Computed example of a mutant assay.
Amino acid sequence: MTENDKQHPDTQQEDLFSKQDIDTTIKGLEKASDTWIDQAVEKTQAISGNTYIKLDCGLLTVDQINYFLNSMPFELTFADDNNQFLYYNNMMPTKEMLAGRKPSQIGNAIAYCHPPRARKGAAAVVHMLRTGQKKKFRLAVPGNGPDKCILHDYIAMHDEKGRYRGVNEQIYDLMPDIKWYLKHTGQKLVDDPDAAADTVTGPSQHEGKVENPDATTGPSQQE
C-alpha cells in the first residue's frame, strides 16, 4: 500500500475497474471494447425510435427521451453501481464538450475514463456516494480563469428501495449564468480580501482531503 493509499483508504474498497457483474450487467461482453454499445444492443435487442417507455412519472418514446436529455444545458454521464460507464447525453460534438466523450468509451470501467493519477480521488468520491457519506459531491475544475467556472457535480442515484445504483455526473460552466445574473441585477463581482479562494483544488480542501477525481482533463480522457 502506498502512502497515497493510506491517505485515501476508501480507494481500497471501491473497484473502479468494474470486475464484478451486477443484476443489470450485460454479460458476455468485453467492457473495454470500442464497439461495446453495438454488441450490447444486438445482445439485448434493445428498443429504439418511436417505441414507448413507461417512466415513473410519464410516458415517452426513446426518441423523445433522447431529445429531452440532449437538450439539457449541461453534460450528463451515467455510471452504474458496478462503476461501468453506460451513457452520456449527445448534446454536442466531442471537441466542443467540457469533458469530451465519445461512443467508443461506452461500456468501459470508469477507471479507464480517468487518467491514472486521478483514480484514487475518483474512487474516494464514488465510495462516499455509495456509502451515503455524501449525496452530492461538487468539484471545481482547476485553472478555470476569470471567464469560466466549470463544475462537476457527482450525485448518488438510488432505486425505490434506497439501494445505491450509481453516479449521475453533471458538468457545466456556471459563468454564463453568473454573467446573466450580474447583467440583469446591475451587480458585479468584487474580490473579498478576507476570503481564501479554493481555485486550485476545488472541494478537496473541504471534503475530507479528496483528490481531484478528474485532474485537469475531465472524466473522459482514457489512457
Score class of each variant (00 low, 15 high):
2 T>H: 14
3 E>H: 13
5 D>I: 07
5 D>W: 11
6 K>P: 02
6 K>C: 02
7 Q>E: 10
7 Q>W: 03
8 H>K: 07
9 P>M: 06
10 D>I: 00
11 T>F: 04
15 D>W: 02
19 K>T: 10
21 D>F: 02
25 T>I: 14
26 I>C: 07
30 E>Y: 03
31 K>H: 12
31 K>Y: 03
31 K>I: 02
35 T>N: 13
35 T>Q: 14
37 I>G: 08
39 Q>C: 05
40 A>C: 10
45 Q>V: 04
46 A>G: 07
47 I>K: 15
47 I>G: 12
48 S>T: 09
48 S>Q: 12
48 S>I: 06
49 G>C: 09
51 T>Q: 15
52 Y>M: 11
54 K>T: 10
55 L>Q: 14
55 L>R: 14
56 D>G: 12
57 C>W: 11
58 G>V: 12
58 G>P: 08
60 L>K: 14
61 T>C: 06
63 D>E: 12
66 N>M: 14
66 N>I: 05
70 N>D: 15
70 N>I: 02
72 M>H: 09
74 F>I: 02
76 L>Q: 07
76 L>H: 03
76 L>A: 13
80 D>Q: 10
86 L>P: 04
87 Y>L: 04
91 M>P: 00
91 M>A: 09
95 K>E: 11
95 K>W: 09
97 M>D: 02
101 R>P: 00
102 K>L: 13
102 K>M: 15
102 K>H: 08
104 S>G: 08
108 N>V: 08
109 A>R: 04
113 C>T: 06
114 H>A: 07
116 P>L: 12
116 P>E: 15
118 A>P: 05
119 R>N: 06
120 K>F: 03
122 A>S: 09
123 A>K: 00
123 A>L: 05
126 V>P: 11
127 H>E: 13
128 M>L: 11
132 G>T: 01
132 G>E: 02
134 K>A: 05
135 K>H: 15
135 K>N: 15
135 K>S: 13
136 K>Y: 04
136 K>D: 05
136 K>C: 10
138 R>C: 04
141 V>I: 11
141 V>P: 00
142 P>H: 02
143 G>E: 14
146 P>A: 12
147 D>Y: 09
148 K>G: 04
148 K>H: 12
152 H>E: 00
154 Y>P: 01
154 Y>C: 02
159 D>R: 08
159 D>H: 11
163 R>Y: 15
164 Y>F: 10
165 R>H: 14
168 N>L: 03
168 N>I: 00
168 N>Q: 10
171 I>F: 04
171 I>K: 01
172 Y>A: 06
172 Y>S: 06
173 D>F: 05
175 M>Q: 13
175 M>C: 09
176 P>W: 06
177 D>R: 08
177 D>F: 13
178 I>S: 09
179 K>A: 08
182 L>G: 04
183 K>N: 15
184 H>C: 06
185 T>V: 06
185 T>R: 13
186 G>A: 09
187 Q>A: 11
188 K>M: 13
188 K>T: 12
189 L>M: 15
192 D>V: 03
193 P>M: 12
196 A>Q: 14
196 A>T: 09
196 A>N: 13
201 T>L: 05
202 G>T: 00
205 Q>C: 07
206 H>Y: 01
210 V>W: 00
210 V>N: 00
210 V>F: 01
211 E>T: 01
214 D>G: 04
217 T>F: 08
219 P>H: 03
220 S>Y: 01
